[in-house]
């Protein structure tokens, strides 16, 4: 049986802001269908890496490949149309539009030919349990619903790789669990590869197959949650103690 294709390959990525090194020689890859967590303390470079992968920031060095195609200099809207989707650390919705319109914007750009736009929007609304909020504006929604709209907009039309930037932060335990269920459902039902940036390692450990740990602008560990939790470099650099990490 063939191994799954490499969905994302980040090779020797570096990024400097003036004299500040935000990323240094970052290398990792994600296979199609995987759910991978990206963790690290504040300032480790997670957000910068996300911005580089999604095309909002150009790297100072290195390259990004998406399903084998070099996309290092590709514009962010073209990456999205190719199925590379993302959410933002601070939810960014189109505030003047309804939930339906928010999803329609992405669906109208990214829907493959032959598929019905209205049907796709309705499917996304149903999948993200937003049918009753469809005509509301984002300002009328709870944080959990706003995050669901953002994920719905991210996957609308065509999505092969979903990058979630702290989508669970600020949610109650129940809300976070529901959202994790929905994300896992997207991974299983739509075959979407998922990369999750999070601080709450205990939540990620139950959700992801692999963890990539960033510290001081570089990758210090890459393995299963259990391997990472037992990695002495990670424990010393980031987690403190194993017990604290998995609590």
């Amino acid at each position: 049986m063939n191994a799954p294709a490499v969905a994302l390959e980040v090779r020797n990525i570096a990024r400097n802001f003036g004299g500040v090194v935000a990323l240094r020689d970052v290398t990792f890859s994600v296979r199609e269908g995987e759910v991978v967590g990206l963790i690290g303390p504040n300032g480790a470079g997670k957000s910068t890496l996300f911005e580089i992968v999604s095309g909002n920031i150009r790297p100072s060095g290195g390259r990004v490949a998406y399903f084998g195609r070099d996309c290092t200099t590709m514009a962010s809207h073209l990456r999205r149309r190719a199925g590379m989707c993302r959410t933002f650390q601070k939810v960014r919705l189109f505030e003047s539009m309804t939930v339906r319109q928010n999803i329609s914007v992405a669906a109208s750009q990214c829907l493959p030919k032959g598929r019905d736009l209205g049907e796709e929007v309705n499917n996304i609304l149903a999948q993200m349990r937003l049918e009753h909020q469809a005509e509301r504006r984002p300002s009328e929604l709870t944080l959990a619903d706003r995050k669901r709209v953002e994920i719905g907009r991210a996957i609308a039309g065509h999505c092969r790789l979903l990058m979630l930037d702290e989508s669970l932060s600020g949610l109650t335990h129940d809300e976070a669990e529901h959202l994790i269920d929905e994300i896992m459902q997207l991974n299983r039902a739509r075959g979407i590869t998922v990369i999750v940036v999070e601080h709450v390692l205990s939540v990620l450990a139950a959700m992801v197959q692999r963890l990539v740990v960033l510290h001081n602008a570089t990758v210090i560990a890459d393995g299963t949650p259990s391997e990472v939790a037992h990695d002495p470099v990670v424990i010393e650099a980031y987690l403190g103690t194993k017990q604290k990490a998995l609590r």
Binding site: N56, R92, Q101, V105
Partner: peptide, 23 residues
């Protein structure tokens, strides 16, 4: 569709690009 794209760009350029809009 153009109107929806224009309003998306007006609301948030970065999010519009992340939704596939050619800003």
């Amino acid at each position: 569709k153009l109107g929806l794209e224009m309003q998306a760009v007006r609301d948030d350029e970065v999010a519009a690009a992340a939704a596939g809009v050619a800003v």
